[in-house]
Simulated scan of single mutants.
Amino acid sequence: MRKLFIITLLFIGVAACKTNPFTGQRTLNFYPNSQVFPMAFAQYDQFLQENKVITGTKESHMITKVGQRISSAAERWLSANGYPGYLSDYKWEYNLVKDETVNAWCMPGGKIVFYTGILPITQTETGVAVVMGHEVAHALADHGAQRMSAGTLQQIGAVAGNVAIKDPEKRNMFNQAYGIGSQVGLMLPFSRSHETEADRIGLQIMAIAGYDPAEAAELWKRMKAQSGGQAPPEFLSTHPSNDTRINNLTVWAPEAKAEAEKFGVTKFQ
C-alpha cells in the first residue's frame, strides 16, 4: 500500500504539470480549466446573489473600465508571446461589492470582485489598476488550480503516512508534525510565491494597459499604513510582508515599463 501511494504521488507530480506562460516554468496543476471554471463561475454567481453589487456609479464604472484595460493588455501580451487563444475560455466580469473589507479578488476564469473597503487605499484609477493587475495575474497563472493541486498532494501525503505507520502513538506524532511541517514548510511558502509572482506579472500587465507601475509600491505603502504594522511574521503568513512587497515592486517597476515599451506604450497615467 505504501508503495502504491508513493507511485501515485510520483505519477501525479510528473504527469500533472502545466507551463506558466509568464515565467516559462512548469507548475503543478492537475485540475483543467474545464473542471475549475464551471465551479468558479457558479460560486461567483452565488456570491453576487448574496451580496450588494453596486452599479451605475462612478466607482463601479471605473472598476469595469480598469478591468477591461487590464484583461485586454493580458491578451495582447499572451498573443505576442506565443499563447493566442489562452483566454478563450475566460468570461470576464468586473463587479464592485459593498463591503468594508479591504480586499479584491479574481476567480479562475476572470470573475472579479472589488470591495468598496479597498477604494480608500487605491485612491485613484491607477491604484485600482495595481490591485486589478495583481488579482488578474493570479487567474492567468492558474494559482487557484495550483493551490488545489498542492492541497490534494498534502492530503495524499497525510493518508500515506497514516497507512504506513502502524503504531498509534507514532501515528499521532506524525500527524502533528506533518500538519505543522507541511503547512509552514510547504503550503505557506507556496502561497507566498504565488503572491510574489502575481505582483510581478500584474505590474507588467498594468504597464501594458497604460498605468504607471511605480504606483504599485506607493499603494503598498498606504496598505502598510492602514494595517498599522499589524502582521504575522512572514514565514507564518500566506503573503510576503509589506516591506518585501514594497522593495520588490520598486525594483520591478522599471522592468515593467520596459516591457510596456515593446507594445508601444511609453506614457503612463
Rank of each mutant, 00 (worst) to 15 (best):
L4T: 12
L4N: 08
F5M: 03
I7T: 06
I7K: 14
I7R: 07
I7V: 14
L9S: 09
L10R: 04
G13Q: 14
G13S: 09
V14R: 05
K18G: 03
N20W: 07
F22P: 01
F22I: 03
T23G: 01
T23R: 02
G24K: 06
Q25N: 09
R26T: 03
L28P: 00
P32H: 08
N33E: 12
S34D: 10
Q35D: 04
M39A: 05
M39N: 06
A40D: 01
Q43N: 10
D45I: 00
D45V: 01
F47H: 05
L48M: 11
N51E: 12
T57Y: 10
K58D: 08
E59P: 04
H61S: 12
H61E: 15
M62V: 04
I63L: 00
K65Y: 06
S72F: 03
A73L: 02
R76F: 00
S79F: 01
A80W: 00
N81G: 05
G82S: 14
G82T: 09
Y83A: 10
G85W: 11
G85L: 06
L87D: 01
S88G: 01
D89M: 11
Y90T: 01
Y90A: 08
W92L: 10
Y94G: 02
Y94S: 10
L96W: 03
E100I: 07
E100V: 12
E100F: 13
V102I: 15
V102G: 04
W105S: 14
W105R: 02
P108T: 09
G110R: 08
K111R: 15
I112D: 06
I112E: 10
I112Y: 13
Y115D: 07
Y115F: 15
T122A: 15
T122D: 12
T124H: 00
T124C: 02
E125N: 10
H134F: 02
A137Y: 03
A139I: 07
A141N: 13
H143K: 12
H143G: 04
G144L: 00
G144A: 09
A145V: 02
Q146R: 13
S149H: 11
S149A: 15
Q155H: 09
I156P: 09
A158S: 15
I165D: 06
I165M: 12
D167P: 03
E169L: 11
E169T: 13
N175T: 05
Q176E: 10
A177D: 05
G181T: 04
G181P: 05
G181V: 03
L186V: 14
M187S: 14
F190W: 13
F190D: 14
S193Q: 14
H194T: 00
R200N: 09
R200H: 09
I201D: 00
A207Q: 03
A209F: 03
P213A: 11
E215V: 10
E215M: 12
E218A: 11
E218G: 02
E218I: 08
E218D: 12
K221G: 15
K221N: 13
K221I: 09
A225W: 04
A225C: 04
Q226K: 14
Q230H: 14
P232I: 04
F235W: 07
F235E: 14
T238L: 04
H239T: 11
H239V: 09
N242G: 05
T244Y: 01
I246N: 12
I246G: 10
L249G: 00
T250R: 12
T250C: 05
V251L: 11
W252T: 02
A253D: 14
A253C: 12
A253K: 06
K257Q: 07
V265I: 15
V265S: 10
K267L: 11
F268T: 02
F268S: 03
